[in-house]
Nucleic acid binder design. Structure first.
Lengths: 219, 219
DNA sequence: TAATTATGGTACGGTATATTACCATACCTT
DNA sequence: AAGGTATGGTAATATACCGTACCATAATTA
C-alpha cells in the first residue's frame, strides 16, 4: 500500500535529454528551496527565474503555473518525508529500547528544517491547498502512527504488552508526547530544544507509555 | 505575574466619544474576523474598509498601518485566549477526576475555531511577526503548562503523586497527549474529532499519566 | 451660533506580481 | 550540414494592494 498516492502532477523526466533533466532538477530544487523558505505567496516567479535562470515558458508549459509548480514540488517533498518513516523497522526485542530508538528517530525527523517547513506550509496553506495539506499529514504523522500502531498490535499478540488498550490511541499518545513540544516550539519561532532535553522527553514518554501498557496489575 | 505582557500597541479607547468607541470596536472586530479567516497577506485593507466602512486615515493614524493593526488585533485576541486558562482552577480532590476535567477543558479550548485560527497564524506568520508568535504560544500552551505543572508540584508535595518525575515534563506530556491529535488534524484541514473520540483521548491520557505518576513500586 | 476638529468617501502614486507574447539563439534530429 | 524544435531572455498586459492626499461633511467645542 502506498501511503502517499499523490493527486498531483509530478513533472516527468521521460523523453528528456540529459541537459533537460538537469535543468528540471535545478528548477525543482530551487523552487522547493524558495517555497519552503518563504511560503507560497511570498515566493515570486521572478525570484525563482532570477535564481535558476531559464525561460518562464518552461515552467508554465510544464507545470501549468505557480500553483501547479507548488503542488508538484511539495508532493515530491512529501515522498522524501515518508521514506525514512516507511523504512523504519521496529524490532521485537526489548520493548523499552525499541521505543526509545523509535522516539529518538521521529524526534530527529520532525526537527529537520525541511520537515519543519513542510509542516509549516501544511498549516499555513491548508485552506488554499487542502489536498496537499492532507498529503503532508498522511506522509508524516499518520504514517508514523501506522508503523507504531502495527508494532504495538504485534506486541500485544505476543503478550509483551497488555492487549486492553487501543493501539492507534497509544501510538498517537506516544508520538505527540515525543514530538509535540519540540515541534510547536520550533514552529512558533522558539529556539531549538537541546539534545539533553530531547533525551529526557523520549525517556519520559517511554516511561509513561510502558507504565500503562506493560503493567498487568493495574486497571 | 502577567502571562502576556504585550509588546504591542493596543488601541486605547481613552478620550474617545461613545460613537468613536463603537466605531473602534467595529473596526477591530471586523479586522480580527478577516485576519483570522484569511491570514495576514490575503487580507487587504480595501476588503476591511469595504466591510466596516469609515475612512482609511483613521486606521493609519491609530494603528500605523497594516502591520500595526494586525499586531494590535492579534494581541487582543491573545488576551482572550489566556483568560479561560488563567481562570482554570485545579482542585486538590480526586486526581483522576481533576485531570479528566482539565484535559477535557483544554481540548475544548484548543478546538474552538478562533483559537485554532490563532494557532494557524502563529505558525504561518511566525517569521514575519516573531514576537507576536511567541505571545500566542505564551498565552496558550505555555500558560496551560504552567497551570498544570504547578498543580502537579502541589500534588507531589502532598504525596498524592510520586515526586520523582519532573512536573514540567509531565505537564507537557499530558497536554500534548490530549491536544496533539485534534489540533494537528484540524490545522491540516481534516475534519473535527467527535465527542466520543475526545473522551477516549482524555481517558487514555489520564491513564498513561497516572500509571506512571501514581505508582510507587515501579522504577 | 461660529469655529475648529475629526471623519467619511474617493481618487492617486508607486510598486509588485502572475501570466502571456515574442524573437533570437542554442540544441537536437535527420 | 540543414532544418526544425525547444529554450533563454525580455517586454508587455492586467491586476492588486499599501499608503497618502484631498475635499466635503458631520461632530464637537468655545
Amino acid at each position: 500500500m502506498a501511503t502517499t498516492d499523490l493527486p498531483f502532477h509530478l513533472a516527468s523526466e521521460k523523453g528528456l535529454h540529459p541537459k533537460g533533466v538537469e535543468r528540471l532538477r535545478k528548477l525543482t530544487a530551487s523552487a522547493t528551496e524558495l517555497f519552503l523558505e518563504h511560503g507560497y505567496e511570498a515566493t515570486s516567479m521572478d525570484m525563482l527565474i532570477q535564481q535558476v535562470g531559464g525561460s518562464r515558458r518552461n515552467i508554465y508549459e510544464r507545470f501549468g503555473g505557480k500553483e501547479g509548480l507548488f503542488s508538484a514540488v511539495i508532493a515530491e517533498e512529501c515522498v522524501k518525508l515518508a521514506e525514512p518513516l516507511e523504512s523504519l523497522t521496529l524490532e521485537d526485542g526489548c520493548v523499552r529500547q525499541t521505543l526509545e530508538k523509535f522516539g529518538a528517530e521521529i524526534l530527529h525527523i520532525i526537527k529537520q528544517p525541511r520537515v519543519l517547513e513542510l509542516h509549516r506550509l501544511m498549516i499555513a496553506e491548508g485552506k488554499r491547498f487542502p489536498q496537499l495539506s492532507r498529503t503532508i499529514w498522511s506522509a508524516g504523522h499518520h504514517n508514523a502512527k501506522s508503523v507504531l500502531a502495527a508494532w504495538i498490535r504485534r506486541q500485544q499478540e505476543q503478550g509483551t504488552l497488555r492487549p486492553a488498550l487501543d493501539p492507534s490511541g497509544l501510538a498517537y499518545a506516544f508520538i505527540h508526547m515525543v514530538t509535540g513540544e519540540a515541534q510547536l516550539q520550533l514552529l512558533s519561532g522558539g529556539r531549538c530544544t537541546t539534545k539533553e532535553q530531547d533525551n529526557n522527553t523520549v525517556t519520559l514518554a517511554v516511561s509513561l507509555f510502558l507504565a500503562a501498557a506493560q503493567e498487568t496489575d493495574h486497571a
